Simulated scan of single mutants.
Amino acid sequence: MTQTKLGSLIEAVINVLIGFGINFSANMLIFPVFGWSISAGQNLTLGLIYTGISVARSYVVRRWFNSKLKKAAEQLAARAAKQGAPNGQ
């Protein structure tokens, strides 16, 4: 079964939103350890930029894998059809 383009986009967005929440929280906790000060607004802006990049990356990778899996399944089915079903099946 293949995933629709909309399904891929929804999965990518949900995955990245979860990552955004983790990243936002981690930045607010970890940056001060290194002496970097960042406001919540700056953190949000930075996070939104990286989130856009991440959604695009995740969507492209998902569609690429989906295409490769579909092609592999079609090739296996074609080979099986050429060989014929064993035992009269």
Rank of each mutant, 00 (worst) to 15 (best):
A80C: 06
S37M: 09
A73Y: 11
L17N: 11
A73K: 11
N23E: 13
V16H: 00
F24L: 08
F20Q: 01
N66F: 01
G7V: 10
R57W: 08
L17P: 03
A77P: 01
F31C: 01
E11T: 15
V16D: 00
R57Y: 13
F34S: 06
A78G: 07
T4A: 05
A72K: 09
T51W: 03
N66L: 02
G7Q: 10
Q75K: 13
S25R: 05
A85V: 05
I22C: 14
Y50E: 08
A26V: 09
I38H: 00
L29C: 03
A78T: 08
V55C: 07
R79E: 11
S54R: 03
Q83K: 10
N87P: 01
N23K: 12
K5A: 14
T4N: 05
V55Y: 02
K68R: 15
K70T: 12
G52R: 04
L76F: 12
F31K: 02
A77M: 09
A26Y: 07
R79C: 04
K5Q: 14
G47H: 02
G52C: 06
R79Y: 03
S37H: 13
N27W: 00
R63Q: 12
T2K: 15
L17M: 13
Q75T: 09
A72W: 04
A12E: 01
W36T: 07
S8C: 12
P86Y: 02
M28E: 05
G19Q: 02
T2A: 14
Q42G: 07
I30T: 10
M28C: 03
K71S: 11
I18C: 07
N66K: 03
S58N: 15
N15Q: 04
G52F: 03
R62T: 07
L9F: 15
A73R: 14
Q42Y: 01
L17D: 10
I38V: 13
G35T: 05
K82R: 10
Q83I: 01
I49R: 07
S8K: 02
L44C: 07
R63E: 13
I14H: 03
F65A: 07
K5P: 08
A56I: 15
R63I: 06
S8T: 10
Y59H: 07
A77D: 11
Q89C: 05
Q3V: 10
I49Y: 12
S58A: 15
A40G: 11
P32F: 04
A56T: 15
I14F: 10
F34T: 08
G88C: 08
V55N: 04
A26D: 06
I38L: 09
K82W: 01
G84A: 08
I18P: 01
I14N: 08
S37Q: 14
N15I: 02
A12P: 00
R57H: 10
T4K: 04
A12H: 00
Y50F: 15
L46N: 07
E74F: 06
G35Y: 05
Y59G: 02
S39G: 13
S54N: 13
A40W: 09
A72V: 05
F34E: 02
S39V: 05
I53N: 06
I22A: 15
G35N: 06
V13D: 07
V16C: 04
I49W: 10
N23H: 13
Q42A: 06
N23L: 12
W64T: 15
W36E: 05
V61K: 12
L9Y: 10
L76Q: 15
A26S: 09
M28P: 00
L46R: 05
Q75A: 15
I14Q: 09
T51A: 13
Q42W: 02
